[in-house]
C-alpha cells in the first residue's frame, strides 16, 4: 500500500477552491488523471484537455469547497464525465464521424466507475514519482517515461553518466521506501529491463 494512506493527504481539508494556492495544488494533482479519464471517452488529447480546463475554471469561479478526499475525487470525476458528454454533444458532427469508426466509449455508470478506477489507480503510482526530489524525479521520468538511455539523459541534463546512475538508484530506493513491494516491482521491472537492454547495469 502507498504509505500515505490518502493520496491527497498533503492537502488539509476542507479545500476551498477559491484559494489560489489550494486551487493550484488540486490542479497539479488531478489535471493529468482527469485528462486521461476524459480521453478514454473522447479519444482525443486536445478535446480532453479543453474539457478538463473548463472544469477547473468552473471550480475556481464557483469557489467549490470539498470536505474530504472521497468527496473531492467523486466530484471531480463526475464533473469530468459530464463535461466529456457535453463536449461530444456540442461537437456532434465531428464525433459522429468517429462513431462511425467504432471509436465511441459508452457513457454508462459502469464505464464511469471503471474508467475512474483505471485513471486514479495509475495516478496513484504516477504521483509517487512526482513526489520524489526534483532531480531524482527528472532522471527517473526520462528513463522510465521517455525511455532514454543513461548517456542520453546525461547529455540532455548536463550531468555525468555516473551521476545519472546515482540519481536513478537513489530515486529508486526512495520510491521503494514509499510504495509497497508490488507497485515497486512493476515500476522497477521497466527500469531494470531498460538497463539490461542498454547493458549499463
Amino acid at each position: 500500500m502507498v504509505k500515505n494512506q490518502d493520496d491527497v493527504q498533503s492537502l488539509s481539508y476542507p479545500l476551498n477552491m477559491g484559494d489560489e494556492r489550494i486551487f493550484d495544488q488540486v490542479f497539479r494533482m488531478y489535471y493529468a488523471p482527469l485528462c486521461d479519464f476524459s480521453e478514454r471517452y473522447l479519444h482525443s488529447k486536445d478535446d480532453a484537455e479543453e474539457t478538463i480546463g473548463k472544469l477547473f475554471v468552473n471550480l475556481w469561479n464557483n469557489k467549490e469547497v470539498f470536505s474530504d478526499p472521497d468527496q473531492t475525487r467523486a466530484y471531480l470525476y463526475r464533473s469530468a464525465y459530464n463535461g466529456s458528454l457535453n463536449t461530444i454533444r456540442s461537437n456532434k458532427r465531428r464525433f459522429k464521424r468517429e462513431h462511425a469508426y467504432g471509436m465511441d466509449t459508452e457513457f454508462t455508470e459502469e464505464s464511469f466507475l471503471n474508467n475512474m478506477l483505471r485513471s486514479e489507480m495509475i495516478a496513484m503510482i504516477s504521483r509517487e514519482i512526482d513526489r520524489l526530489p526534483e532531480h531524482y524525479a527528472n532522471v527517473i521520468r526520462m528513463s522510465y517515461v521517455e525511455g532514454l538511455k543513461n548517456e542520453e539523459i546525461a547529455d540532455l541534463s548536463g550531468l555525468s553518466v555516473q551521476t545519472v546512475k546515482n540519481y536513478k538508484n537513489k530515486g529508486m530506493n526512495l520510491l521503494k521506501s514509499r510504495v509497497s513491494g508490488r507497485i515497486f516491482a512493476i515500476i522497477s521491472s521497466f527500469l531494470f529491463l531498460d538497463q539490461l537492454k542498454n547493458g549499463l547495469f
Binding site: R28, A32, P33, D36, I122, A123, S126, R141, Y144, V145
Partner: peptide, 12 residues
C-alpha cells in the same frame, strides 16, 4: 506503463 506514460505526457 502505458498509463503512466500517458498521464506524465500532459504538460500540467
Amino acid at each position: 506503463e502505458a498509463g503512466i506514460k500517458n498521464q506524465q505526457a500532459f504538460n500540467i
